[in-house]
Design a protein around this nucleic acid. Structure first.
Lengths: 157, 157
DNA sequence: TTGACTTGTTAGATTCGTCTAATCATATCA
DNA sequence: TGATATGATTAGACGAATCTAACAAGTCAA
């Protein structure tokens, strides 16, 4: 299951999947707004994705994903969501920055690393109190800049 | 302190810094081997970096970093090292994959996220036993695929 | 049903990063 | 000291992804 799309094409697929999820249909203009590119760039990307069998697009009409395109888009979105959750829930990164970073890192992370990160989130956040103590302490550390005494004691105890 | 270099140029700077660190000098051929590109690509990149004042390069001669080039390279390397440590020491990713992923993600991570990740590693690994119990349990979880009973008990206790 | 507005497409330029093929410079050693 | 191998550069092409400008199609309402 190699990654056969470029970062840019993955972005298009991801955006189309989101738009189709929201309003049932995607249009060139919406895609262009979602990605911050001009419409001709979208047209040209759609032609490529269409030839690759990932997108269905009738001239001057709606845009949709094929089954295969949807599969790829889901995969990208899973990477994005996982990274976003890690960044915001573990590293405590501000929501907007976390989205931006997830958006760029989603194209760089390998599937091996992704699966490990998924398990990490599962492991850490399936904790009965949702957030284990060490994570609460880490977030305190982030704000206060020094290891909480309580934590040091606990550790050495 | 915005990121003003492309991913590709950052890779060149990083490679040059490493080569200079090892053998005191860098040559076009070594850079090309280190990055897996052909020599003309290196020559062309060096011209650009040279014009940007990041690299010193005399025709047919050695390649070195300017003070500014070194500053940028250090920054890239810091990102790489941080990501590598996180991937291998926390997510338990195989060394080779961790290097590859760090190599790609280093261009995508923001400085905000980076600093939080640095603090995360500090926090987790400054633990008296080097590795806190939860991390040991996580690694067990990775291998065995289910939450160790011991951990569940501890958590609920 | 015909303007006028919105949306989409085409054509063509640009930038970036790479490549191959050909040429040029340097170093080595017989 | 010159022939040859190695290393470096130039020239030119290519693909990816974007843009602007100009044109075409679709929509809606008076």
């Amino acid at each position: 299951m190699e990654r056969e799309q470029t970062a840019s094409m993955e972005d298009y697929l991801e955006a189309i999947a989101h738009l189709c999820g929201e309003s049932k249909v995607a249009r060139v203009k919406h895609i262009s707004q979602a990605l911050g590119v001009k419409m001709p760039s979208v047209t040209s990307a759609l032609r490529k994705l269409s030839e690759g069998g990932l997108v269905e697009h009738e001239r001057y009409g709606y845009v949709g994903l094929t089954a295969e395109g949807d599969r790829v888009a889901r995969d990208v979105i899973r990477r994005h969501e996982t990274l976003y959750r890690f960044l915001s829930e573990i590293l405590n990164i501000d929501s907007e920055v976390a989205q931006e970073d997830a958006c760029k890192m989603e194209h760089a992370i390998s599937s091996v690393t992704l699966e490990s990160m998924v398990k990490f989130l599962e492991f850490v956040l399936s904790h009965p109190q949702r957030e284990p103590t060490w994570l609460k302490n880490f977030k305190r550390y982030l704000e206060q800049g020094e290891l909480p005494q309580e934590c040091l004691e606990r550790c050495v105890r």
